[in-house]
């Protein structure tokens, strides 16, 4: 049952990713396929006992990041338009071939079966467990990410702001 659900969500994730990359005309539909991928990945995380990460995946990626993408698409009022995707077919063919080649190599070296997964302590992947780790062992990284977010916020505001001094 679990295995079947896992494969189902995996198939949804791959289909969503393909839908985003192959949808040449409609950016919004592409973004929505990406949402399907994000939600499916959230379900997969929960199946892998990463409850906090699974919920944050949906909350942050599907609920905020992709909405920001859609917001920008609407702000720029990008209707369906072909962007001349036909150019540079040689480079693109090479890129696709290289990507597929690397993927085949990767799947080739991936062992058919890992050893049995480790036994989990109670509460593994819950918000208490991960949160305690985040605020003890990794507190420096946590604080640094807050600086990163501040820098990103200031940067985004300055980049997107209209110049008011006339220059």
């Amino acid at each position: 049952m679990n295995e079947l659900l896992f494969q189902l969500f995996g198939a949804i994730a791959v289909a969503g990713a393909l839908g985003m990359v192959l949808n040449l005309r409609n950016v919004v539909a592409g973004a929505l396929s990406l949402v399907a991928t994000m939600v499916a990945l959230g379900a997969i995380y929960v199946m892998l006992e990463a409850y906090l990460v699974g919920v944050l995946q949906i909350l942050v990626y599907a609920g905020a990041i992709v909405v920001v993408f859609l917001f920008v698409v609407m702000l720029l009022n990008l209707r369906d338009q072909a962007l001349g995707e036909g150019r540079q077919w040689f480079t693109k063919t090479v890129a696709v071939l290289a990507g597929v080649g690397v993927l085949v190599l990767f799947l080739g070296v991936l062992p058919a079966a890992f050893s049995a997964p480790a036994d989990l302590e109670a509460g593994f992947g819950g918000y208490r467990h991960v949160g305690a780790l985040l605020f003890t062992d990794y507190v420096l990284a946590f604080e640094v990410t807050s600086l990163l977010l501040l820098a990103a916020m200031v940067g985004a505001v300055i980049l997107a702001k209209r110049r008011t001094d006339g220059s």
Partner: peptide, 14 residues
């Protein structure tokens, strides 16, 4: 993280 039972991987994801 699931394989080794180590939640550090999930902290990295955050």
């Amino acid at each position: 993280s699931r394989q080794w039972g180590d939640p550090a991987g999930q902290v990295f994801v955050l």
